[in-house]
């Protein structure tokens, strides 16, 4: 039984969070015009008439925060020229895009947390115990 559930949950027919659903794939193949790809390999499409824009996630789960800022702008009609044609100017101090890490091993834990090694900063309530 457990095996069956696992199988179902990895199949694209039953899940939408691992890869694009069957319907989306069909729609993409019928109407989609590929516009470009970002560094993670996600592929961006638009309709021929340019009315709709969408993304097919690759190399990872379907997670909206994986869309980097420049593509996010295009995807939400903030800009019309996709960054593949006209990349956004970048500054030396800009960091690479990082998707939301919540729930992953890379998630933020405050210093002193057990998950951060359990070494907390010194506190005024600390005391020095006597040792024989």
């Amino acid at each position: 039984m457990a095996n069956l559930i696992e199988k179902l949950f990895s199949s694209p027919i039953f899940t939408w969070w691992n890869s694009a659903t069957f319907g989306t794939r069909l729609y993409t193949s019928r109407k989609g015009v590929k516009v470009g790809e970002d560094k993670e390999g996600n592929i961006y499409y638009r309709e021929k008439d340019g009315k709709r824009r969408w993304v097919i996630y690759k190399n990872g789960p379907i997670e909206a925060s994986r869309v980097p800022a420049e593509w996010h702008g295009w995807l939400h009609y903030t800009v019309d020229t996709p960054p593949s044609e006209q990349p956004l100017p970048t500054k030396s101090w800009e960091k690479d895009h990082v998707p939301n890490l919540t729930g992953t091993a890379g998630a933020y834990v405050p210093p002193g947390s057990q998950r951060a090694g359990g070494q907390r900063a010194a506190s005024s309530s600390d005391y020095e115990a006597w040792k024989p």
Partner: peptide, 11 residues
């Protein structure tokens, strides 16, 4: 002195 050389466990 209340925080130094304290006995904090039985021996």
């Amino acid at each position: 002195g209340l925080k130094l050389r304290r006995l904090d466990t039985p021996y």
